[in-house]
């Protein structure tokens, strides 16, 4: 039973981190209708800067710089590439982001090489005990931070002028533009926010119990894609629920994999994708996605 609770809480915590990534993914999709395959590289860029800078400027400053830099890179991608691409279909825009992803990820993995970079976070490998349940401090911080960021984002999305502009642009870009919403700014800010969220997520993907940032971190980040799509690509609620589903599934499958030895080693890494397939079979638009209807 304690194992179950531990796995559940760990799953929710890692799920919250996935939700951060998926949320950024969904924001970008809502604002610019681009499926951003470069998201994993944004995350890697933010995490890499934090890992490299903390010995020099200290952890908190490094985190701040990392988040800012990831936001900047994301905004730059929007400004230099997405805005200028004159393409017929959104599939092609998605492939452009793959090109960007190849460039950034290749360069960063070259810089990282075979190293495992520590994140220099103040929580280290401390654990907290509640009754018989042992939890890593990092997991609790991850959960609290992710929850706080997500709440802040959703409030901003609902109540600030920026949020209203963004929702208007997502609803009907042309009308929003006629009403004075600057579409360029909206989409650029969406990319920047998504980049920043990804950098925070990078931190929590690389702290204890993970040894640190290494070249496979971007593959870990790919698990947030199923989180985004199983919730529905155009739904922020979907991103949250999707993240939690993926996190808990992964945690449970990894924790109990000895009882499921017939499924092979490392089933925990594959489970998120299998869950996604099952959900897409039943609901092709995702759990909370709007089903596309068209008047002919």
């Amino acid at each position: 039973m304690t194992t179950f609770v531990e796995l559940l809480v760990n799953g929710i915590s890692i799920g919250a981190v996935y939700a951060l990534i998926a949320l950024g993914f969904v924001i970008i999709f809502k604002a610019t209708e681009v499926v951003n395959f470069a998201h994993a590289s944004l995350l890697l860029a933010g995490g890499y800067l934090v890992a490299r800078l903390w010995p020099v400027v200290g952890f908190w400053a490094a985190l701040l710089i990392g988040v800012a830099a990831a936001a900047l890179v994301a905004a730059a991608i929007e400004f230099l590439v997405i805005r200028r691409a004159n393409v017929a279909s959104h599939s092609v825009l998605a492939i452009v982001t793959i090109g960007v992803d190849i460039v950034i990820t290749t360069e960063l993995t070259r810089q990282i090489g075979t190293d495992v970079l520590a994140m220099g976070d103040p929580w280290g490998s401390e654990v907290v005990r509640f009754g018989g349940v042992t939890l890593a401090e990092t997991r609790i911080v991850a959960l609290v931070t992710a929850a706080a960021l997500i709440t802040a984002f959703l409030l901003a999305f609902k109540y600030t002028g920026w949020g209203v502009a963004m929702r208007a642009a997502a609803e009907d870009a042309e009308t929003a533009a006629l009403m004075g919403v600057r579409l360029g700014r909206v989409s650029m800010s969406a990319w920047a926010v998504a980049g920043g969220l990804a950098a925070v997520a990078a931190l929590f993907l690389c702290v204890f119990p993970t040894p640190g940032l290494d070249r496979s971190t971007s593959l870990v980040a790919l698990k947030a894609f199923p989180a985004a799509i199983l919730g529905g690509l155009d739904s922020t609620t979907g991103a949250l629920v999707g993240g939690l589903i993926i996190g808990v599934t992964e945690s449970m499958m990894s924790g109990y994999q000895n009882d499921m030895a017939f499924l092979g080693r490392g089933i925990g890494d594959v489970a998120p994708f299998l869950v996604m397939l099952v959900i897409l079979l039943i609901r092709p638009a995702g759990l909370f996605g709007t089903k596309e209807l068209a008047r002919v």
Binding site: V35, S91, A94, G264, R265, L280, P284
Partner: peptide, 30 residues
């Protein structure tokens, strides 16, 4: 095909990630 026929564009792109990761899992374990 139940998925390939129903999803479109980039949605299918993400769904097909499952093939890669599932496939790798099978290749390493079977």
């Amino acid at each position: 095909s139940p998925i390939a026929g129903r999803l479109k564009g980039a949605y299918l792109g993400i769904a097909t990630f499952a093939l890669i990761f599932g496939g790798q899992h099978v290749l390493f374990n079977a």
